[in-house]
Design a protein around this nucleic acid. Sequence first.
DNA 1: CACCGATGGTTCGAATTTCAACTTTCTAGG
DNA 2: CCTAGAAAGTTGAAATTCGAACCATCGGTG
Lengths: 159, 159
Amino acid sequence: METDNATPRWLTEDEQCAWRTYLAVNRLLTYQMEKDLQPFGLTMNDYEILVNLSESEDLRMRMSDLATATLQSKSRLSHQITRMENAGLVRRENCESDRRGLYAVLTDEGMATMKKVAPHHVASVRKHYIDLMTPETLASLRATLKPIAEHLRTQRGKP
Amino acid sequence: METDNATPRWLTEDEQCAWRTYLAVNRLLTYQMEKDLQPFGLTMNDYEILVNLSESEDLRMRMSDLATATLQSKSRLSHQITRMENAGLVRRENCESDRRGLYAVLTDEGMATMKKVAPHHVASVRKHYIDLMTPETLASLRATLKPIAEHLRTQRGKP
DNA sequence: CACCGATGGTTCGAATTTCAACTTTCTAGG
DNA sequence: CCTAGAAAGTTGAAATTCGAACCATCGGTG
């Protein structure tokens, strides 16, 4: 009995190049963003959480929702919030309506940090990504990636 | 003395959406690729190293070159290779011309693993990325990302 | 109302990653 | 030839991440 029953459709030269380029940008960009955030003592994860909270009603979010929004596992988020709590950026607060539940709440200090860091982060995103394309290119890139994101969301179970 | 001397150029709605979509695809895709490789006991990192070695002269590469090629720190690569060595996928070999140097060499088992896994991995890349676009879209995506990769390569110091 | 499977979160241990030494060998300049 | 620095890799400890196990509460059902 064979384990493979067909010749695989290998990637063409172009496809391969496209894929590898994508992977490279992926890593390099992550690296760069992380590096630009470092002087402020934040990681991308930290920043993303601050953003999510700052955009939420009452500057708070349920742990699960935050985990879903940031595509992290519950476990990881829990640790993450603990660290940020120690850093004074967020605090945990009980949920009235569901006694199992907790809110992660943005503290004043967290908000202040957010406001201080945001301009730099945005500048970084521009410098290394957005401003390297024309608006048209960016739009088409977005149009390309959007459905891929949708597709992937349907694929994944809980991380 | 002001720390910020200008109003930052915030992202427009569209730019923001594009950026966030990009980040999302990034994570979701990484997650998915990782997951598809898991049944074979490999990570993306493992796989990438196998690919690099298998495409190299004599199935070997200097540790530094491999680190550069895979955009990892020396330290990380060293640990990584140690793990893969324990798994029998690669072996270290001394370098004649530079006695500080080492080669990471693909073993027969490593090559066999590579051959076994590649079709599945390629299928995964197709399913979750390549085949979700037309060839034209893919080409333009590549054209967009290529210069960004170049830009980022010039930016970074050693990771 | 009592039970039971699902939900929300945390925690523990193992695996991975990072960061800062550290060792050895090269290379270039005096 | 000798030496100071750079380069190649490794190492060990600390931080992060992952996965599974765990505890408590919820919600629906008999």
